[in-house]
């Protein structure tokens, strides 16, 4: 009797926590199919009119495309910079290595509003505000520490001595990297790429400071839209974002699950 009650309470507790966390995310979907002119619950009728409106909203479509391109560039650059850095910070022994690791991952701790302001002050002098390179560099400041963390963890949890073993079998350092290190760090690479993409695509504060008014980015446009409109268009955008993020998470899960299967 008692165990049944406690188990029931336990389940109830878990369900309410899940609801608390996920309700807003789930709620976005029905609201996005509302036929009303304002966000209201429950919707008086159902339609896909806000998805159609979204497709015809030129600013949103442009912003969406810009954000995708920026996130893509940021992700690629993040990997190009973070991978050699992670290898150097885990595989080479040099003076001040730990200090450098802390320094490179420190921006994770800074409030992004401080970063945004600092970057704005610097970029204004070089005419980088409102430009594509400006936004990409600004985003890199945020994404690099994330990627570096994930890659360093991935590299330092690699099975012991496999790189040494490859060396004794006649592989030069480049062959060791290509045949051993790179395949074994693939899960970490996929994870950090996904993280960089999501963080860049999602970044509001830095983008608000640097993108200016000329370069439209989705989070910024969405932010401005909500300031002046209350219609369910934002719900439609949100629903698409949730689905997109879910897709990326699933890809990572597959990659890491796959990675675990491959390693010991």
């Amino acid at each position: 009797m008692l165990p049944t009650i406690s188990r029931g309470l336990h389940a109830l507790g878990i369900i309410s926590i899940m609801m608390f966390l996920l309700a807003p995310v789930i709620l976005v979907f029905p609201i996005s199919f509302s036929a009303d002119a304002h966000v209201a619950w429950p919707p008086s009728a159902w339609s896909t009119r806000w998805y159609v409106a979204l497709l015809h909203n030129e600013e949103m479509v442009t912003a969406f495309r810009n954000s995708l391109v920026i996130a893509g560039c940021v992700t690629a650059l993040t990997l190009v910079v973070a991978m050699p850095a992670a290898v150097a910070l885990t595989r080479w022994k040099f003076w001040g290595r730990d200090a450098l690791t802390s320094l490179f991952t420190a921006p994770l701790l800074l409030p992004s509003i401080v970063l945004g302001l600092a970057i704005l002050v610097i970029f204004a002098g070089y005419g980088l505000v409102g430009s594509w390179p400006g936004v990409i560099i600004g985003h890199l400041v945020i994404t690099l520490p994330y990627a570096l963390r994930v890659l360093i963890t991935g590299l330092s949890t690699m099975p012991a001595f496999v790189e040494d073993a490859a060396g004794t079998l006649g592989a030069d350092p480049w062959q060791v990297f290509r045949r051993i290190t790179l395949p074994l760090m693939t899960p970490a690479l996929v994870a950090s790429a996904a993280l960089a993409f999501i963080v860049s695509f999602d970044e509001v504060v830095i983008s608000l400071f640097i993108a200016g008014t000329q370069l439209k980015l989705l989070p910024v446009s969405l932010y401005h839209y909500v300031e002046s409109w209350t219609d369910p268009l934002v719900a439609a955008v949100s629903a698409l974002l949730v689905l997109g993020t879910l897709g990326i998470v699933l890809i990572v899960e597959r990659a890491i699950g796959f990675g675990k299967a491959v390693s010991k």
């Binding site: 099975p159 012991a160 001595f161 040494d164 073993a165 490859a166 491959v262 390693s263």
Partner: peptide
Amino acid sequence: GVMFQSYALFPH
């Protein structure tokens, strides 16, 4: 030819 204590086989 080196044989390591942990064997160090290539897991992939």
